[in-house]
Amino acid sequence: MVKIGPIELSDFPLLLAPMEDVSDPPFRAVCKENGADLMYTEFISSEGLIRDAAKSVQKLDIFEYERPIGIQLFGSDVQTMGECAKIATRANPDLIDINYGCPVKQVACRGAGAALLQDIPKMVQMTKAVVDATHLPVTVKTRLGWDDNTKNILEVAERLQDIGIQALTIHGRTRAQLYKGDADWTLIGRVKENPRITIPIFGNGDIDSPEKAVEYKNRYGVDGVMIGRASIGYPWIFNEIKHYIATGEHRPAPTVQDRIEACRKHLDFSVRWKGPRVGIVEMRRHYANYFKGLLDFKPFRTRLVLVDTHDEVLSILHEVSEAYEEMYNV
């Protein structure tokens, strides 16, 4: 059993990554149903939360069936991050996570996210401010370093553990790499092997199949893995990995009907939570992923991203079911 403070997880938990514009409650719901053990909100700007910005406040929404769930925060000001942690704590998550890994310009160039990898003393100070501001377990997600010349994750892991974080997730790339090239898990393994490290270490980066999850589990000894992009449109990956670990065999691939049902549940929740207009518009980014690989699906996708009502989307999904019934044994 893996423990994060009082939170008890399975022997090898599978975490859903906090992905901006993806990891909202509707998406989390389908991932939880399909085996995600621990999930996080989209990252929330500390500045936005302090200003009571509507988008940031809405991201605090969590639901009982999601537990355990963490709220992820990012920011560049130590005091503001401490205040933000207090606000997030009142939303009653199971833990608070700090984002020191986001590489995108609008975050890193403002001194937040992965930018803190260039200023370890400030990272330590900020982390302590968050730890001191909440009674909840605090965890961190970060990268190997800023670039190839500053892969300082071994130092970061020790120093953050020393001031009280309860778990660490490491993405196997530097900030300079963004999401390009292959993730390098070698340093993640070295952090896990460090006898000074006693907190759970989770690996992140390029886990896109059951085989890879098992290979990296055995090779690098991590306590669990965090899955991001591979879960978009394919929430079944969590239970597929669990089944493969338990049996050494693959689960049957999701049928077209499975895809339609997951997409419909995602859509229904999106409309309920965001309202009919925003819910429909924001679902448009997901259709290509849910139906990736289906022969001649493009005409259906084109229609799905053009219609404006819930009923119209459901009608097209019904057509998809009928069109692929014989071809894919729905």
Rank of each mutant, 00 (worst) to 15 (best):
N204A: 13
R196Q: 12
A29K: 13
T89K: 09
Q58K: 14
I120R: 10
A133P: 10
K242L: 03
A36C: 07
K55A: 02
E312Y: 14
H310M: 03
P6G: 02
E261R: 15
Q177L: 08
I71L: 12
D132Y: 12
K151F: 01
K141M: 03
K55S: 06
E64A: 14
E325W: 13
Y220K: 09
P137W: 00
S270P: 03
C109R: 15
A167C: 00
Q161Y: 09
T247N: 14
G172T: 02
H286V: 07
Y234G: 07
A323W: 14
L314I: 11
M81K: 00
S46T: 01
H318L: 12
P254E: 05
N239S: 11
S76T: 11
K151S: 02
V305L: 10
V222P: 00
I50S: 07
N329L: 13
S315M: 01
Y244S: 11
I165K: 01
K265V: 06
G279R: 03
K212L: 13
E64V: 13
Y220C: 07
V107S: 03
G82V: 04
C31R: 03
H135N: 11
Q106S: 14
L304P: 07
D311Q: 14
E215V: 06
K141N: 07
P6L: 11
T174Y: 06
Q106V: 15
D268R: 09
L49G: 05
T309M: 09
I50N: 08
M39H: 08
D308Q: 11
K55N: 09
D132C: 06
T89A: 15
H171A: 10
E20L: 03
H243D: 00
G5Y: 12
P195V: 07
T134R: 10
I120Q: 04
P137M: 01
T41H: 12
R143Q: 11
I62H: 01
I71A: 14
V278E: 00
K3N: 13
I69H: 02
K180V: 10
K274Y: 05
V307D: 01
W146N: 12
W273A: 05
N289Y: 05
K212I: 15
K122T: 15
K59G: 00
R173D: 09
V330N: 10
I170A: 15
I241Y: 04
L49T: 04
I316V: 08
I4Q: 08
Y216H: 03
S76A: 11
N204D: 11
A323Q: 12
R259H: 11
G293N: 06
A112S: 13
S45L: 08
T309C: 08
R143A: 07
T186K: 12
K128G: 01
L178T: 15
V305W: 00
K151M: 01
S231A: 15
K298P: 06
D296L: 14
L187V: 05
V313T: 06
T139D: 03
T255W: 08
R219F: 02
K59F: 04
V140D: 02
M39V: 15
Y40L: 12
D24P: 04
L306W: 03
G48F: 04
Q79M: 08
T174M: 02
M126H: 08
G248Q: 02
S45G: 10
C84L: 07
I316P: 03
Q118I: 00
N99A: 10
R175M: 05
L49Q: 00
L9C: 01
K192M: 02
D37W: 04
A53Y: 10
G248T: 04
V305D: 13
L136K: 08
I165S: 08
K274C: 01
E240C: 06
R272D: 06
K105P: 09
N152F: 04
A54I: 08
